[in-house]
Design a protein around this nucleic acid. Structure first.
Lengths: 126, 126
DNA sequence: TTTTTGATTTAGAACTGTTCTAATAAATTT
DNA sequence: AAATTTATTAGAACAGTTCTAAATCAAAAA
């Protein structure tokens, strides 16, 4: 594991979650100012392949990278903000259904976040 | 609703599911040979905004467009093939948790499809 | 009808996020 | 230390999608 790989792993895990490749690049530059964007993508891909981090593909937005620990995501339809949720675990049920073939699942729950709801409701409705 | 919008809606709903924008474009060209790619994107976006079709963002693959009817997706990690599944509905549980703020959810189950499993196991293991 | 208005479509340029390439540097093995 | 492998770099290339500005179409108004 190279210093970059390790550092990128730490950044994705430690920082506020759901970082874009570019945000990871920004953080990494603070430590290694000469690092290249390619290194960030290379290592993010490698870490994903190794199953050490997860990639979250989203609509209209670059991929996010997240810690592997099992949790689901809440996505605000209005502002796009992501948050973590711990929803009832579906793993057992999926294992029952698909046996060994089952690998993992990705659950995104779309909603309107409290901030956006407040912004809406504070406007006069007529 | 314009003829293109209607036609694109029909293509997404009628055809084998999970079409890419390009596949939709291909189908639409059979009917309107002069149609432009921009029209396809414009109308797919409009239909998504209207909630008449859904967009499925995937890793390493262009977005797919799908009928709106509630169902979940099974994605082969090896070959990328998508299939539909009807998993236990989580809607009520999510409504209980998030109330009116809840909109919808997207569940993708990753697995190794039967074809890929067979391809693997038929290779000698030593 | 014609005219006006607004929405839709078009072609292709532009853009964004990501991957690729070929050269360089670093690490590891011999 | 020489040879080999692996990682990194800069920037070009690429794919998918959006944008732009002109052209066309459709509906409503005159």
């Amino acid at each position: 594991m190279t210093k970059y790989e390790k550092q990128i792993y730490d950044i994705v895990n430690a920082s506020r979650q759901h970082m874009t490749a570019d945000q990871v690049y920004g953080e990494l530059q603070k430590i290694y100012p000469a690092v290249s964007r390619a290194t960030v993508y290379n290592n993010l891909n490698k870490l994903c392949d190794l199953g050490m981090i997860r990639r979250l593909p989203l609509e209209d937005s670059p991929d996010r990278y997240d810690r592997i620990e099992k949790h689901d995501h809440l996505v605000c339809q209005k502002c796009g903000k992501l948050s973590d949720i711990c929803f009832d675990d579906l793993t057992q049920s999926l294992k029952d259904q698909f046996g060994e073939a089952f690998l993992y699942y990705d659950l995104k729950v779309f909603y309107i976040c409290p901030d956006c709801r407040n912004a809406q409701s504070s406007k006069p409705s007529i």
